[in-house]
Simulated assay, not measured.
Amino acid sequence: MSVTEAGASAGRGRPPILSEQAIVEAALSHLTQRHPLMDLSMAQVARDLSVSATALYRYFPTRDQLLRALSDRIFAEFVYPDLALPWVEQLRVWQDSLAMLFERCPSLTRLMGWGEEIAPAWFKIQMPPLRVMHDQGLRGTDLVEISTWFLSGTVGLLRTHMIADSELQRPSHLIAFETSLPLLTPEERALVDETLPFIALGDSDRIVREGLDALVDRVVKRVAALA
Rank of each mutant, 00 (worst) to 15 (best):
P120D: 10
D213G: 06
F75A: 01
A119C: 04
P186F: 05
R104P: 05
M112V: 06
A164H: 09
R206S: 15
V208A: 07
R110L: 08
P16Y: 02
T141S: 12
E178M: 11
R110W: 10
K124T: 14
G13R: 11
V192Y: 15
A6L: 07
L168R: 12
A10R: 11
I207F: 12
G7V: 08
S41K: 03
D135Y: 07
G11Y: 10
A27G: 01
V223S: 05
D142V: 10
E145C: 11
G7C: 10
E77Y: 06
T4N: 10
M42L: 15
D203V: 02
L212V: 06
D64Y: 08
P120K: 04
G13I: 13
G140Y: 00
P36Y: 06
F123L: 12
P61Y: 01
R206P: 09
D64V: 04
A214E: 07
L130A: 05
L70H: 04
L174Q: 15
T32L: 03
M133A: 08
M162H: 13
D165W: 02
V220Q: 13
Q95W: 04
L183P: 03
L85P: 03
L201I: 05
M42A: 08
V220S: 07
Y80M: 14
Q95F: 05
A99H: 09
M112K: 09
F78G: 03
A46S: 04
Y59K: 05
Q65A: 01
E89R: 14
D72V: 08
W87C: 01
G113I: 00
D203C: 10
H30W: 07
F198I: 07
M42N: 06
V192Q: 11
A224V: 12
R92P: 00
S50L: 06
D48N: 13
T179F: 04
M133C: 12
V24F: 05
L67A: 01
S71E: 02
D39W: 06
L157A: 03
L168N: 10
F177Q: 13
Y59C: 09
Q95C: 14
